[in-house]
């Protein structure tokens, strides 16, 4: 432990980040600039989320990392190991046992509690960016609540695809004020954002932190005649038979066989442990995944 300061970052940096977090919580959905540090991983691998987690963790916390819902992907494993080593915190793969959960592109299926914190990794925090390249202008648009442009994007979706085809990073309005990019989570997860836990968003390369306090009203933007729909694959999980979870599609062979499995690995495992069995599942987990 003497090799690293707790959670890698020095105390002044963590204080700076905590101030940004508090400001973000005070102004839900507002992007707070912060002096993002170089982290020992490339941009795009979660440097923003890692800095927020580092500033949030205490030595007694239990930490969980998911990447696209899974605890066992490279990104999740390396970040988990990073904090095991630099903060010496306990880690877990169980949503229920975690105090701080860092996530890339998913919200866990299990409802989070008031004493939990969800930390998102954000690639591009500015929801208006693809339509308005000028930062000075987008800031002004946020300040003046000029959000017509956001609907132009949805209009373009419908005119080109017959429906709102934006399926992830679906823009939301926070507490009736700021329009926010919820990071590239599937739009299926959008309704979950009105939750008891604190949600923090970190964008390392773009140097922005924003936040959603517990029980904040989150509205996904839509049209009256094309209302928002939280869509998912129309299947049940082939392993645990869950009908309410977000599914990943897995191609099994080149004969067109495929299976759908929960993207949230912990949710799937806990259901199977409780005795739920899907179309391709067996009582023995190892066989099923083989």
């Amino acid at each position: 432990m003497s090799d690293y300061n707790f959670a890698y970052l020095d105390e002044q940096t963590k204080r700076m980040i905590r101030r940004a977090i508090l400001k973000g919580l005070a102004i839900p959905g507002y992007q707070v600039p912060f002096a993002s540090r170089e982290m020992p991983m490339p941009y795009g691998w979660g440097t923003g989320g890692v800095q927020v987690s580092a500033a949030t963790l205490t030595p007694d916390d239990t930490f969980k990392v998911i990447d696209q819902g899974a605890d066992d992907t490279t990104n999740a494993v390396s970040i988990r190991k990073f904090f095991e080593r630099t903060a010496n915190v306990a880690t877990t793969e169980e949503t229920d046992k975690a105090d701080v959960i860092q996530t890339r592109h998913r919200i866990p299926e299990a409802v989070l509690r008031e004493d939990q914190i969800l930390v998102y990794q954000v690639p591009i925090p500015e929801p208006l960016r693809f339509l308005e390249p000028r930062e000075t202008e987008t800031r002004k648009m946020h300040a003046l609540e000029e959000y017509g442009l956001m609907h132009v994007k949805l209009y373009e979706d419908i005119s080109q695809h017959g429906a709102i085809s934006t399926s992830y990073a679906y823009p939301v309005k926070v507490e009736g004020r700021y329009v926010m990019d919820p990071s590239p989570i599937p739009k299926f997860d959008n309704p979950k954002m009105d939750m008891p836990a604190i949600q923090l968003f970190g964008a390392g390369r773009e140097q922005r932190i924003y936040a959603v306090p517990p029980y904040t009203k989150i509205v996904s933007l839509d049209f009256e005649d094309y209302p928002f729909e939280a869509s998912k694959a129309d299947h049940a999980c082939d392993l645990c038979a869950a009908k309410d979870s977000y599914l990943d599609e897995v191609i099994l062979d080149d004969q067109g066989n495929r299976m759908f499995v929960c993207s949230d690995t912990d949710y799937c495992r806990s259901r199977r442990a409780a005795g739920h069995v899907g179309r391709l599942g067996t009582k023995n987990q190892l066989e099923a995944s083989a």
Partner: peptide, 18 residues
Amino acid sequence: SAGGNIGERLMAVGDRHY
């Protein structure tokens, strides 16, 4: 698109019916 260009001002003043 041309439609989106024309529609922008309508959406900017609050029209939400595609």
